[in-house]
Design a protein around this nucleic acid. Structure first.
Ligand SMILES: [Mn+2]
Ligand SMILES: [Mn+2]
Ligand SMILES: [Mn+2]
Ligand SMILES: [Mn+2]
Lengths: 226, 226
DNA sequence: TTTTAAATTTAGACAAATCTAAAAATTATT
DNA sequence: AATAATTTTTAGATTTGTCTAAATTTAAAA
């Protein structure tokens, strides 16, 4: 009879992975992460979230204090970043190799990110020539979970005459991305703020020699560098 | 109150898809397919299979007669072929684009085949330039489920002095494929039977100018054309 | 044609993930 | 500090897919 209990750390399920990823993303906004925030983002009910938090806590993937919220443990954070890595690499694949548009990739990547094979993901990384960012400008972590924290500023924070390059978006919905596409606001484009309208906060900017006006709401989700 | 019951044909689950595919493959050998055959191939218990057969029958994907076995309906067959199509296309991708060996692709494809996106699979097909066979020589069905029934003959059926080209294998396990690899018995290779040994039925063949001997068991799983 | 063996199905339980409704804890407001 | 509002958790069900053990049906053997 063994003196020690062998704890077989089972692999995470599809569902657990989605929870970990959600908690990871919400951690940026608030830490610890609250039950309702997770429920809303995952389109599920608070009661279901509570159940899962207990389970993740049991597996030592999160630190969970009743009524207070959750934080990822080191182990949980690494697991989460790994899913994010896979998600973003698949998005690059879809856009670069299969001609998907940047608003078409999200749902498929949401499924592909759960495929379990390190060989697959390392080979994919190599095949894509080790991309540093995904089609939405988000950084792609390396095998060890490290990635450069790109210095972004929201377009809505710029002042009149400020210049910069579009390097990311903080909203990934298809309607939003299609809207940007139509306006010519795609990654890499240089812009200059020509005016900020007083009455609605909307932003007028020069792009490719044209002047266009975008709502404050849209400006908030466009990330500018330099 | 509506007079008609609306039957929402739900999409198949990951598990249902695996059952359909298994039934499809077993149909080639015997029709109808028996419960135990499915259970054995899926590494599960007969009782679980019975439960699933009732469910698939309910969804009109199989014709199921208690104690007699199952047959795929037209609908079920199409669904099954679609999974097979995805499985084989992904295998080609892994080998052609990510340098996987032919014995490394199966398990990963087993997961990838369940990704739900027609756009993805049609684009993948295009990206791979519409391959007709997978890395094991198996035919890849088109979008409509049609594929050429390639005329194979088992190497074990050949007589002395018969010639032919290796165009497929009927066993996909990693050890078997690695074994073939080591012997130089890969797809496209031309062989000639030089002798069939009486006492154990093993086959001696010429390949690339060399003579090698393979067991009858191995010969049974090598498919030859022309 | 009984009897025996093999295959298959039912009955009843269980784990994962979800839900609704009700209870408990925390936070905000008077 | 007491009350109200919000957030979170529990209790109890439900669905999907699985299992073991027992009962049935079919096929094979005597
Ligand atoms: Mn996902
Ligand atoms: Mn992205
Ligand atoms: Mn599968
Ligand atoms: Mn194959």
């Amino acid at each position: 009879m063994s003196k020690f209990k062998i704890r077989v750390t089972k692999m995470q399920s599809y569902t657990e992975e989605n929870y970990l990823k959600t908690i990871y993303h919400l951690s940026v906004i608030s830490n610890p992460v609250q039950t309702n925030a997770i429920a809303e983002r995952m389109q599920t009910k608070a009661a279901s979230v509570t159940d899962m938090l207990k389970k993740l806590s049991e597996k030592e993937l999160v630190d969970y204090v009743k009524y207070q919220g959750v934080t990822l443990t080191e182990k949980g954070k690494l697991a989460a970043i790994n899913i994010v890595r896979k998600h973003r690499l698949w998005e690059v694949f879809l856009v670069e190799k299969l001609s998907f548009k940047w608003d078409e990739v999200h749902d498929v990547a949401e499924e592909l990110e759960h495929i379990k094979s390190t060989l697959l993901i390392e080979r994919l990384d190599e095949f894509l020539e080790f991309p540093k960012v995904d089609p939405h400008g988000d950084p792609i972590p390396d095998q060890h979970g490290n990635f450069a924290d790109l210095a972004f500023v929201k377009l809505s924070k710029l002042k009149t005459n400020d210049k910069g390059t579009i390097t990311g978006v903080s909203e990934h919905s298809s309607p939003f991305l299609k809207h940007l596409e139509k306006l010519g606001l795609t990654l890499g484009k240089k812009i200059e703020v020509s005016e900020i309208l007083d009455f609605d906060g909307s932003v007028e900017l020069s792009i490719d020699g044209n002047k266009i006006n975008i709502s404050r709401e849209v400006a908030k989700h466009i990330l500018i560098s330099k």
